[in-house]
């Protein structure tokens, strides 16, 4: 299992992600600087969390214009798996790789807490290790995680089984529409999600519920 983590100026959970990928796969992932124009031959590309370019214009907006994102788009179109977490999700929506947008949290504050996620589909390369409808723990840490898309898009996402995770209604931390926490592209090889599975992979971190996402992705390539 070869993986790459894209590092933007202002990424700040890239080390968490590199650690999680290595810890779970046993292979050192490759860190790729945003100025690169091509990607190594990998099975999984991860856009990590953080505040790329300070998120000063809009979250993920400027990172979406980085040279490396062209290569990410091409790989995604070829079916290479791409996982965007938090800022990574925001970048994926800004570049149009995933539909919708992430707005400021409904309560307007940054929120860091454990939430409960329902596995909305296990028919995907990212969620196959979970059972359908399983409810898992996962931390969130973001200021702009309020998922929004128009009704048509939402209906299409649901109709095509492209919602990967939903917050349980009582733990929706940000006002996301239809409690959506993570969505996939039409080929279901790109997943964007606000919660941080990479921070819940060992008992010392308070649980291992986040492992399933990485183990699912690994299983399909192995």
């Amino acid at each position: 299992m070869k993986s790459a983590v894209i590092v933007f100026p202002g990424s700040n959970r890239e080390r968490d992600m590199l650690y999680a990928l290595e810890h779970i796969s046993g292979h050192k992932p490759i860190a790729v600087w945003h100025q690169e124009t091509s990607l190594p031959d990998v099975d999984l590309i991860v856009l990590p969390g953080g505040f790329s370019y300070g998120d000063y214009l809009r979250t993920g907006a400027i990172a979406g214009l980085s040279p490396i994102m062209k290569a990410v788009k091409e790989k995604a179109a070829k079916g290479v798996r791409v996982l965007g977490v938090c800022n990574g999700f925001q970048i994926l929506t800004e570049t149009g790789i995933l539909p919708g947008a992430l707005l400021r949290n409904a309560h307007l504050k940054f929120v860091c807490k454990q939430v409960r996620l329902e596995v909305a589909t296990n028919a995907s390369v990212f969620t196959s290790r979970y059972t359908q409808g399983q409810v898992i723990d996962c931390p969130v840490a973001h200021h702009d995680g309020n998922y929004f898309a128009d009704e048509d898009t939402l209906n299409r996402l649901e109709g095509e089984d492209r919602v990967a995770f939903r917050y349980t209604p009582e733990t929706n931390p940000n006002g996301s529409i239809r409690n959506i926490a993570g969505v996939m592209n039409d080929q279901k090889n790109v997943l964007g999600m606000m919660p941080h599975p990479e921070n819940l992979i060992e008992p010392a971190q308070g649980g291992t519920d986040g492992r399933g996402i990485f183990e699912s992705a690994l299983e399909w390539v192995a």
């Binding site: 214009l57 907006a61 400027i62 214009l65 539909p99 947008a101 707005l103 929004f148 898309a149």
Partner: peptide, 9 residues
């Protein structure tokens, strides 16, 4: 179109 606004929202 390309950067200053996100025309989705």
């Amino acid at each position: 179109e390309r950067v200053l606004a996100n025309t989705v929202i």
